[in-house]
Protein backbone atom coordinates (compact mmCIF):
# COMPACT_ATOMS: atom_id res chain seq x y z
CA UNK A 1 0.00 0.00 0.00
CA UNK A 2 1.19 3.49 -0.73
CA UNK A 3 2.66 5.49 2.09
CA UNK A 4 0.14 7.78 3.73
CA UNK A 5 1.16 11.47 3.79
CA UNK A 6 -1.95 12.57 5.64
CA UNK A 7 -1.39 14.00 9.07
CA UNK A 8 -2.36 11.81 11.96
CA UNK A 9 -6.09 11.40 12.29
CA UNK A 10 -6.81 13.62 9.31
CA UNK A 11 -8.38 10.82 7.33
CA UNK A 12 -11.19 10.07 9.69
CA UNK A 13 -11.10 13.34 11.67
CA UNK A 14 -13.05 15.52 9.33
CA UNK A 15 -16.03 13.26 9.05
CA UNK A 16 -16.10 12.80 12.81
CA UNK A 17 -16.21 16.52 13.50
CA UNK A 18 -19.53 18.11 14.42
CA UNK A 19 -21.47 19.53 11.49
CA UNK A 20 -20.05 22.95 10.68
CA UNK A 21 -22.34 25.93 10.88
CA UNK A 22 -20.55 27.54 7.94
CA UNK A 23 -22.11 26.69 4.56
CA UNK A 24 -20.33 24.14 2.39
CA UNK A 25 -17.27 25.43 0.60
CA UNK A 26 -18.69 23.82 -2.53
CA UNK A 27 -22.13 22.33 -2.82
CA UNK A 28 -23.35 20.87 -6.11
CA UNK A 29 -26.92 19.61 -6.34
CA UNK A 30 -28.32 17.72 -9.30
CA UNK A 31 -25.72 19.29 -11.54
CA UNK A 32 -26.16 18.54 -15.22
CA UNK A 33 -24.36 19.75 -18.30
CA UNK A 34 -24.95 18.91 -21.93
CA UNK A 35 -22.81 19.90 -24.88
CA UNK A 36 -25.27 19.30 -27.69
CA UNK A 37 -26.06 15.60 -27.55
CA UNK A 38 -23.12 14.83 -25.27
CA UNK A 39 -23.95 14.53 -21.58
CA UNK A 40 -20.95 15.72 -19.57
CA UNK A 41 -22.65 15.75 -16.17
CA UNK A 42 -25.82 13.92 -15.23
CA UNK A 43 -27.24 14.98 -11.87
CA UNK A 44 -24.03 15.21 -9.88
CA UNK A 45 -24.32 15.88 -6.16
CA UNK A 46 -21.16 16.78 -4.31
CA UNK A 47 -20.07 18.77 -1.30
CA UNK A 48 -16.74 19.98 -0.02
CA UNK A 49 -16.69 21.21 3.54
CA UNK A 50 -14.53 24.09 4.75
CA UNK A 51 -11.04 22.76 5.40
CA UNK A 52 -11.70 19.49 3.61
CA UNK A 53 -9.42 18.11 0.91
CA UNK A 54 -11.49 16.20 -1.61
CA UNK A 55 -10.09 14.28 -4.54
CA UNK A 56 -12.06 14.11 -7.77
CA UNK A 57 -11.10 11.20 -10.00
CA UNK A 58 -12.51 9.68 -13.13
CA UNK A 59 -11.68 8.65 -16.66
CA UNK A 60 -11.13 11.12 -19.46
CA UNK A 61 -14.52 12.58 -20.35
CA UNK A 62 -16.06 11.60 -17.01
CA UNK A 63 -17.00 15.23 -16.36
CA UNK A 64 -14.34 16.23 -13.82
CA UNK A 65 -13.13 19.38 -15.56
CA UNK A 66 -16.69 20.38 -16.43
CA UNK A 67 -17.65 20.12 -12.77
CA UNK A 68 -14.69 22.27 -11.73
CA UNK A 69 -15.42 24.81 -14.47
CA UNK A 70 -19.04 25.10 -13.36
CA UNK A 71 -17.86 25.65 -9.79
CA UNK A 72 -15.72 28.59 -10.84
CA UNK A 73 -18.24 30.08 -13.25
CA UNK A 74 -16.50 29.32 -16.53
CA UNK A 75 -19.26 26.98 -17.67
CA UNK A 76 -23.00 27.34 -17.10
CA UNK A 77 -24.84 24.23 -15.94
CA UNK A 78 -27.76 22.91 -17.97
CA UNK A 79 -29.54 21.88 -14.78
CA UNK A 80 -28.99 21.87 -11.05
CA UNK A 81 -27.11 24.34 -8.89
CA UNK A 82 -23.65 24.88 -7.51
CA UNK A 83 -22.81 27.22 -4.65
CA UNK A 84 -19.55 28.43 -3.13
CA UNK A 85 -19.95 29.19 0.56
CA UNK A 86 -23.65 29.74 -0.11
CA UNK A 87 -23.21 32.01 -3.12
CA UNK A 88 -24.20 30.90 -6.63
CA UNK A 89 -21.21 29.65 -8.58
CA UNK A 90 -20.00 32.32 -10.98
CA UNK A 91 -21.28 35.22 -8.89
CA UNK A 92 -18.83 37.89 -7.81
CA UNK A 93 -19.19 36.80 -4.17
CA UNK A 94 -18.39 33.20 -5.09
CA UNK A 95 -15.40 34.19 -7.19
CA UNK A 96 -14.03 36.29 -4.33
CA UNK A 97 -13.71 33.12 -2.29
CA UNK A 98 -11.99 30.82 -4.72
CA UNK A 99 -8.65 30.19 -6.30
CA UNK A 100 -8.47 28.19 -9.52
CA UNK A 101 -5.80 26.41 -11.46
CA UNK A 102 -7.02 25.29 -14.86
CA UNK A 103 -5.84 22.06 -16.43
CA UNK A 104 -4.70 23.91 -19.54
CA UNK A 105 -3.60 27.41 -18.75
CA UNK A 106 -1.01 29.92 -19.82
CA UNK A 107 0.27 33.19 -18.56
CA UNK A 108 1.40 35.93 -20.94
CA UNK A 109 4.95 35.09 -21.93
CA UNK A 110 6.04 38.72 -21.64
CA UNK A 111 5.11 38.92 -17.94
CA UNK A 112 7.53 38.07 -15.18
CA UNK A 113 6.46 35.71 -12.39
CA UNK A 114 6.11 38.63 -10.03
CA UNK A 115 4.04 40.61 -12.54
CA UNK A 116 1.65 37.68 -13.05
CA UNK A 117 1.00 37.58 -9.32
CA UNK A 118 0.71 41.39 -9.14
CA UNK A 119 -1.93 41.37 -11.89
CA UNK A 120 -3.94 38.72 -10.06
CA UNK A 121 -3.56 40.59 -6.79
CA UNK A 122 -5.08 43.67 -8.42
CA UNK A 123 -7.91 41.67 -9.98
CA UNK A 124 -8.61 39.80 -6.74
CA UNK A 125 -8.44 43.01 -4.71
CA UNK A 126 -5.74 41.50 -2.54
CA UNK A 127 -3.98 44.00 -0.29
CA UNK A 128 -1.05 41.58 0.16
CA UNK A 129 1.38 43.57 -1.96
CA UNK A 130 5.02 42.54 -2.31
CA UNK A 131 4.89 40.57 0.92
CA UNK A 132 2.22 38.22 -0.38
CA UNK A 133 4.02 37.83 -3.71
CA UNK A 134 7.29 36.97 -2.00
CA UNK A 135 5.54 34.49 0.29
CA UNK A 136 3.74 32.75 -2.58
CA UNK A 137 6.86 32.55 -4.73
CA UNK A 138 8.74 31.13 -1.76
CA UNK A 139 5.95 28.61 -1.20
CA UNK A 140 6.30 27.22 -4.73
CA UNK A 141 10.09 27.58 -4.77
CA UNK A 142 10.23 30.30 -7.41
CA UNK A 143 11.77 33.09 -5.35
CA UNK A 144 14.96 33.11 -7.37
CA UNK A 145 13.11 33.56 -10.67
CA UNK A 146 10.64 36.23 -9.54
CA UNK A 147 11.80 38.57 -12.28
CA UNK A 148 12.12 35.99 -15.02
CA UNK A 149 9.66 36.18 -17.88
CA UNK A 150 7.14 33.34 -18.15
CA UNK A 151 8.38 32.53 -21.66
CA UNK A 152 11.76 31.72 -20.12
CA UNK A 153 10.37 29.26 -17.59
CA UNK A 154 10.09 25.49 -17.85
CA UNK A 155 6.65 23.86 -17.90
CA UNK A 156 7.11 22.74 -14.33
CA UNK A 157 7.98 26.25 -13.19
CA UNK A 158 4.93 27.63 -14.97
CA UNK A 159 2.81 24.99 -13.26
CA UNK A 160 4.14 26.05 -9.88
CA UNK A 161 3.51 29.69 -10.78
CA UNK A 162 -0.05 28.65 -11.62
CA UNK A 163 -0.46 27.22 -8.15
CA UNK A 164 0.92 30.42 -6.60
CA UNK A 165 -1.51 32.41 -8.74
CA UNK A 166 -4.42 30.31 -7.48
CA UNK A 167 -3.43 31.17 -3.92
CA UNK A 168 -3.44 34.93 -4.47
CA UNK A 169 -5.87 36.71 -2.15
CA UNK A 170 -6.05 33.84 0.38
CA UNK A 171 -8.95 31.94 -1.20
CA UNK A 172 -11.20 29.84 1.02
CA UNK A 173 -11.76 27.24 -1.68
CA UNK A 174 -9.11 26.04 -4.06
CA UNK A 175 -10.11 24.27 -7.28
CA UNK A 176 -7.11 22.50 -8.73
CA UNK A 177 -7.44 20.79 -12.09
CA UNK A 178 -4.51 18.40 -12.56
CA UNK A 179 -2.08 20.59 -10.59
CA UNK A 180 0.81 18.14 -10.72
CA UNK A 181 0.53 17.03 -14.34
CA UNK A 182 3.70 18.83 -15.45
CA UNK A 183 5.73 18.31 -12.31
CA UNK A 184 8.60 15.93 -11.61
CA UNK A 185 8.41 13.61 -8.57
CA UNK A 186 10.09 16.17 -6.30
CA UNK A 187 7.66 18.84 -7.46
CA UNK A 188 4.70 16.54 -6.84
CA UNK A 189 5.91 15.80 -3.37
CA UNK A 190 6.25 19.52 -2.68
CA UNK A 191 2.69 20.13 -3.88
CA UNK A 192 1.39 17.33 -1.66
CA UNK A 193 3.06 19.03 1.29
CA UNK A 194 1.56 22.33 0.22
CA UNK A 195 -1.94 20.83 0.04
CA UNK A 196 -1.60 19.52 3.58
CA UNK A 197 -0.46 22.95 4.77
CA UNK A 198 -3.47 24.53 3.10
CA UNK A 199 -5.82 22.14 4.82
CA UNK A 200 -4.26 23.01 8.15
CA UNK A 201 -5.04 26.66 7.38
CA UNK A 202 -8.70 25.74 6.86
CA UNK A 203 -8.71 26.09 3.08
CA UNK A 204 -11.01 23.68 1.30
CA UNK A 205 -9.50 22.00 -1.75
CA UNK A 206 -11.09 20.12 -4.62
CA UNK A 207 -8.27 18.24 -6.30
CA UNK A 208 -8.98 16.91 -9.75
CA UNK A 209 -6.29 14.42 -10.64
CA UNK A 210 -5.56 11.32 -12.66
CA UNK A 211 -2.86 10.34 -10.20
CA UNK A 212 -4.79 8.03 -7.90
CA UNK A 213 -1.84 7.33 -5.64
CA UNK A 214 -1.46 11.03 -5.04
CA UNK A 215 -5.15 11.47 -4.29
CA UNK A 216 -5.12 8.51 -1.94
CA UNK A 217 -2.17 9.93 -0.04
CA UNK A 218 -3.49 13.40 0.69
CA UNK A 219 -7.25 13.52 0.35
CA UNK A 220 -9.76 13.24 3.18
CA UNK A 221 -12.40 12.07 0.79
CA UNK A 222 -12.50 10.83 -2.77
CA UNK A 223 -15.30 11.26 -5.29
CA UNK A 224 -15.20 9.01 -8.32
CA UNK A 225 -17.00 10.27 -11.40
CA UNK A 226 -17.99 7.93 -14.21
CA UNK A 227 -20.01 8.96 -17.25
CA UNK A 228 -21.10 12.19 -15.65
CA UNK A 229 -22.35 10.60 -12.43
CA UNK A 230 -20.91 10.08 -8.97
CA UNK A 231 -19.94 6.40 -8.96
CA UNK A 232 -18.44 6.40 -5.46
CA UNK A 233 -17.87 8.87 -2.66
CA UNK A 234 -16.06 8.21 0.59
CA UNK A 235 -12.85 8.24 2.58
CA UNK A 236 -9.99 6.38 0.91
CA UNK A 237 -10.11 3.67 3.60
CA UNK A 238 -13.84 3.25 2.98
CA UNK A 239 -13.41 2.84 -0.73
CA UNK A 240 -10.59 0.34 -0.43
CA UNK A 241 -11.00 -3.04 1.26
CA UNK A 242 -9.02 -6.01 2.57
CA UNK A 243 -7.29 -7.96 -0.17
CA UNK A 244 -5.89 -10.99 1.71
CA UNK A 245 -2.55 -11.81 3.26
CA UNK A 246 0.80 -12.42 1.60
CA UNK A 247 3.54 -14.32 3.40
CA UNK A 248 7.09 -14.53 2.15
CA UNK A 249 8.50 -17.94 3.02
CA UNK A 250 11.63 -19.86 2.21
CA UNK A 251 9.69 -21.46 -0.66
CA UNK A 252 8.46 -18.15 -2.09
CA UNK A 253 5.41 -15.93 -1.57
CA UNK A 254 2.24 -17.65 -0.40
CA UNK A 255 -1.06 -15.81 -0.89
CA UNK A 256 -4.22 -16.18 1.23
CA UNK A 257 -6.77 -14.07 -0.67
CA UNK A 258 -9.67 -14.60 1.73
CA UNK A 259 -7.66 -14.02 4.90
CA UNK A 260 -7.81 -10.85 6.98
CA UNK A 261 -5.49 -9.21 9.49
CA UNK A 262 -7.11 -11.27 12.28
CA UNK A 263 -6.18 -14.51 10.53
CA UNK A 264 -2.44 -13.72 10.45
CA UNK A 265 -1.40 -15.25 13.85
CA UNK A 266 -3.24 -18.49 13.06
CA UNK A 267 -1.81 -18.82 9.54
CA UNK A 268 1.71 -17.99 10.70
CA UNK A 269 1.36 -20.45 13.59
CA UNK A 270 0.31 -23.23 11.25
CA UNK A 271 3.13 -22.54 8.82
CA UNK A 272 5.76 -22.43 11.59
CA UNK A 273 4.35 -25.67 13.02
CA UNK A 274 4.91 -27.24 9.61
CA UNK A 275 8.52 -26.07 9.66
CA UNK A 276 8.14 -23.30 7.08
CA UNK A 277 10.58 -20.38 7.42
CA UNK A 278 8.76 -17.02 7.41
CA UNK A 279 10.50 -13.80 6.37
CA UNK A 280 7.72 -11.24 5.87
CA UNK A 281 3.98 -10.94 6.35
CA UNK A 282 1.88 -8.36 4.46
CA UNK A 283 -1.79 -7.62 5.00
CA UNK A 284 -2.95 -6.58 1.56
CA UNK A 285 -5.55 -3.88 0.98
CA UNK A 286 -7.01 -3.00 -2.35
CA UNK A 287 -5.79 0.33 -3.67
CA UNK A 288 -7.80 3.33 -4.73
CA UNK A 289 -7.02 2.24 -8.26
CA UNK A 290 -8.86 -1.03 -7.61
CA UNK A 291 -11.79 0.87 -6.09
CA UNK A 292 -11.77 3.25 -9.02
CA UNK A 293 -11.83 0.46 -11.59
CA UNK A 294 -14.60 -1.35 -9.70
CA UNK A 295 -16.68 1.83 -9.52
CA UNK A 296 -16.16 2.63 -13.17
CA UNK A 297 -16.93 -0.93 -14.25
CA UNK A 298 -20.10 -1.12 -12.17
CA UNK A 299 -21.34 2.21 -13.52
Amino acid sequence: MAADDRSEGAGQGLLDRPEPTEPAALLATGLGKRYGSVVALDGVGLSVRPGELVGLVGANGAGKSTLVKIACGLVRPTSGTATIYGHPAGSREARQKLGYLAELFRFPGWCTASEVLALHQRLAGSPGGTGERAELLELVDLSDVANRRVEGMSKGMQQRLGIAQALVGEPKLLLLDEPTSALDPAGRRAIRGLLLQLRERGIAVLLNSHLLGEVERVCDRVVILARGRVAADGRPDELTHAGGVEIQTGDGVRRFPQASREDVPRIVGELVARGVDIYEVTVVRSTLEDAYLEAVDSS
Binding site: R92, F105, F107, P108, A124
Partner: peptide, 14 residues
Protein backbone atom coordinates in the same frame (compact mmCIF):
# COMPACT_ATOMS: atom_id res chain seq x y z
CA UNK B 1 -8.32 28.37 -26.53
CA UNK B 2 -4.77 29.18 -25.48
CA UNK B 3 -5.70 29.08 -21.77
CA UNK B 4 -4.85 32.74 -21.18
CA UNK B 5 -8.37 33.89 -20.41
CA UNK B 6 -9.58 31.43 -17.76
CA UNK B 7 -7.24 32.49 -14.92
CA UNK B 8 -8.37 36.09 -15.42
CA UNK B 9 -12.13 35.74 -15.69
CA UNK B 10 -12.50 33.58 -12.58
CA UNK B 11 -11.33 36.59 -10.63
CA UNK B 12 -14.02 38.83 -9.13
CA UNK B 13 -14.04 41.16 -12.13
CA UNK B 14 -17.02 40.49 -14.37
Amino acid sequence: ERGLLQPLVVRPLG
